[in-house]
Design a binder for these strands. Structure first.
Lengths: 199, 199
DNA sequence: ATGTCAATGCACACTGGTGTGCAGTGTGAT
DNA sequence: ATCACACTGCACACCAGTGTGCATTGACAT
């Protein structure tokens, strides 16, 4: 099956390394240039343009990866067919590392490439809103905000906590989950009970 | 008292107009240039540099204004000597329009001028954290997060709702306040009661 | 009437990033 | 042995924004 095995593989390795490193570099500084990414990937700027014709292409590819991963997680936790609030807890637990990895996308959402990112992220937003709506329909979640807004704000809070770099402590996924559950209207006692059921 | 009355006044008018317009323009697009601001203010780019030697100077002046307004509001609501949760409600009500006005600063917090803005906004963050801490000490607020983080995340949620531009609806300060109270650990019933006490 | 000075309208130099072109080099494929 | 081609290294053009210099205009102050 691998026709041009070694040749093609090492090329894909370079490409993947650029993508991985780009997530890192842009995560630290969303305004980093193609040069910074290239250097960090141990490659020359020109080479990056060999794989991605433009900066937008790079960002788009990154976003597509993120959408794929997030959609997978959402599909899996939804497959468990549990209550919406339990599903939310499972979702946050599974999405936690992904959120940190792709933190740059949220930062870039407002900006030059916001339009492209937003449209690609649309489907994920939909799925998230669906989950919250399901919770509202079964009265697990409150209705003080429409599902679309509530899902965004709740996930935004998790994201904010996940990427907050406090001087001494490191972000606490448990506290973040509780916070998001609270704002979804889940009582604190139930929130803690849900968390204690997690493996 | 006005020595060079007309002269100096019209100069201050121009300066103030630039500042006001800058808030507007940068609020819509944080990456707008000095030229865009100048044009929107009905003035030439060179004139803006006459009042503010650099872009950073402009941003700093804007930030100083914001800090002054926010500090005033915080001082006033704290003077009422009510419970921390009631104070929070009053604070959100009073800060709501200000939040929208200075929305650009939050957007610019991550970016080139983040350092300068952050240091100027520091005192406000302190006051906010103090309020939340007070609430935690009197058991009005939950302790799932340290006061510093919780205050930031709660205010961040309010900000997110205040600046969310939904297709048809406009942001609802009441829903935003409830959301923030929930994540602070205030039970929904109490949150609604607090809001109904507001004028 | 005369001077002052904010605002104007150019000019310019500088910076920092993007994206392209092309000749050269080394390593796998044939 | 030779071809293909990913990567290099340097060149360039281009753009958009920043900040400065300076001569000019016009309203206000004296």
């Amino acid at each position: 099956m691998p026709a041009e095995s070694s040749r093609l593989r090492s090329m894909n390795e370079t490409r993947d390394r650029i993508l991985d490193v780009a997530l890192d570099v842009l995560g630290d500084n969303p305004d980093a240039g193609m040069g910074d990414i290239a250097t960090a990937a141990g490659v020359v700027r020109r080479t990056v343009y060999g794989h991605f014709p433009s900066r937008l292409d790079l960002i788009r590819t990154l976003t597509e990866r993120a959408v794929a991963e997030m959609t997978d997680v959402l599909a899996e936790v939804n497959a468990a067919a549990a209550e919406a609030d339990a599903t939310w807890v499972a979702f946050i637990a599974r999405i936690w590392p992904v959120t940190h990895r792709y933190r740059v996308l949220l930062a870039l959402r407002r900006g030059e490439y916001g339009e492209a990112i937003h449209s690609l992220l649309g489907p994920v937003d939909e799925l998230l809103a669906d989950l919250v709506r399901r919770g509202q329909d079964s009265s697990r979640f409150a209705r003080h905000l429409p599902a679309g807004t509530l899902s965004q704000v709740a996930y935004g809070a998790v994201f904010a906590i996940a990427t907050s770099d406090l001087p001494n402590e490191n972000p606490d996924p448990r506290a973040a989950t509780i916070t998001s559950l609270l704002m979804l209207g889940v009582p604190e006692t139930r929130a803690i009970a849900l968390l204690d059921d997690q493996p």
